[in-house]
Design a binder for these strands. Sequence first.
DNA 1: CCCTGATTCGC
DNA 2: GCGAATCAGG
Length: 196
Amino acid sequence: MSEMSWTDERVETLKTMWSEGKSASQIAKELGGVTRNAVIGKVHRLGLSNRVGGAEPQEEAASAPEVVSEEVVEPVVEAVVAPQAPVRPAQPREPAVAPPAVRAKTPGQPQPPQPANAEISPEALANLAEVAKRARRLNLMQLTERTCKWPVGDPATDDFWFCGLAAVPGKPYCETHVAVAFQPMSARRDRRGSGR
DNA sequence: CCCTGATTCGC
DNA sequence: GCGAATCAGG
């Protein structure tokens, strides 16, 4: 049944879809009975090869922008982020408890327990509270390679700072924070008894 | 490995 | 003219 051929109608569909930026495989699927190679081959024979630029328009989804006008290049000034914003630490060699999962927004809300304490050893927890007092409370700009970059508080408020104590060489945090950030997998497992 | 289009060449 | 196979690239 069906000698699948390039009828006027099918060619029209091809032209339309191709000009709309659809990929050869998409068109082939739509037409049915042909492979993307067939579509590409036909496209070339029809002379409507390159539509724009070259090959990348992988986009296209539910919402089709329908670009009918010219493209307007507007200068976008990206926000200049800190030199080495450490909020998302370095390489948790093992697992590492994420630092005080810096809350996105929680204005006016105090943040007593920084990390989800449930996973931290009592010792570390104690030091944590104590070190908070000694913390130098540095801001982003004051951080250096040798300062502890453990974030404290809500970044959205002015009640936000970094520990700033002497960091362990090679690590982004001071000893106390390294202890909570880089916990061996085993240690964490031990501490969590229940669950699922 | 998934995908894209481009080319080749026997049919 | 057609399109599978192949190539070149992301």
